[in-house]
Amino acid sequence: MVTRVTTSGNYSAVLTNLLAAQQRQADAGDRVSTQRNGQNLKDYAKSSELLTAMRTVQTRVGVFQDQNSLIADRLANQDASLVRVADAAQSIRERMADAIASGRVDGLVEDIQAQMNIAVDSMNASYSGKYLFAGGQVDTKPVTASTLADLTVPPAVIADFFKNDDFKVKAKLDDATSVTAGVLADDIGTDLLTALQTFQTFNQGPNGPFTGAMTNAQKTFLEGQLASWNTIRADVTLIAAQNGTNQKRVDDVATDLEARQTSLTIMLGDITDANMAQASADLEQASLSVQSSAYVFQTLKSSSLINFLR
């Protein structure tokens, strides 16, 4: 059998090789320039379902990361406020102990008022324009008492000074972990304001006011108050510790989410990211093929079977 050799057949074969080499060159060039194996899911037909699923998971993890960042900031602000309330309770206790030791109560009322201001301001702390300890009433200041005198104005019911409701913020940290991040002002300050009310009632009573040298009645009263302030400080510190436990859980989940995000990024990269060494080699090889095919095509143009038949 004799294979027919024609000029048109040779042109067709060489042109086909040239176009194929140019396509390989373009594909390799795209991989080198974009560092990707494709531009859309169509280019990853064999792995499209896997890529879609992985990107869905990656988006979900990203949402959890954003939410956890907000929760972590909230908990950090709550911690700072709770520590200030506990410190204020400790300072009141120390000021009373100092007065007992010195036998004088000069400035005692003013010092306790200053610590009350710190405690109330801390319970009225806000984050992103919303009150932290107000429950669901985020636009309403949770503690309305501002002075010792407020605490003894009839009917002077301590619960009336708190405007928070019972709602506590809960957050889902990931698919399996949730925390109760909210703390309520009345949980923090009911005992504190009650003790301050007791102090102010005594200060306004027949054995007051607290000025100058301490009387026996005042000494007995203050000595009886020390244990209460120890308990108040301890209780607020316990709430702060529980808040700290939630901070630790958020940090642990954040670390896990970061690891999952990194793993997903690597897995996606294994599918979508080009092997640059291979892509560069393919580009070089395709460029040589284009040059060779072009040279053959150019040579064929200057030759003809007619020249051999003459």
Rank of each mutant, 00 (worst) to 15 (best):
V14E: 00
S91A: 14
L288I: 12
V2F: 13
T177Q: 12
I232Y: 06
L75E: 03
N216E: 08
T147V: 04
Q298R: 09
S263G: 07
I118Q: 11
V179T: 10
L288T: 13
G129C: 08
Q298G: 04
D79P: 15
A254P: 06
Y295S: 14
M276H: 02
N10F: 14
K130W: 13
L41F: 14
S304E: 02
T198G: 04
G103M: 00
G62L: 01
S69G: 15
A114D: 09
Q23E: 13
T34G: 03
T144P: 03
A13E: 08
T215M: 01
E94F: 11
S128M: 13
L300N: 00
N230W: 06
A171W: 02
Q35L: 08
F202V: 04
T211I: 07
T59M: 09
L192A: 00
R310A: 10
N207W: 04
L18H: 04
D282M: 03
Q225D: 03
V183W: 04
L305D: 09
S287M: 02
L51A: 04
V32R: 06
Q22A: 09
I188T: 05
P154M: 00
R31T: 08
Q67I: 15
I266R: 12
G182Y: 04
R84L: 15
Y131V: 11
A240F: 02
A86T: 12
G224D: 09
S33W: 06
V179C: 10
P209G: 03
Q90G: 13
S263R: 05
S122I: 06
R93F: 13
N40P: 10
F64I: 05
D79R: 14
V105E: 05
T16C: 07
Q39L: 15
L50P: 04
G269Q: 01
E223P: 07
L15Y: 11
N243R: 02
Q200L: 02
L151G: 00
Q204T: 03
V250G: 02
Q204V: 01
A241Q: 07
V14L: 02
K141R: 12
T140C: 13
T34M: 01
A286W: 00
T34R: 06
A26T: 10
L192T: 05
N307P: 12
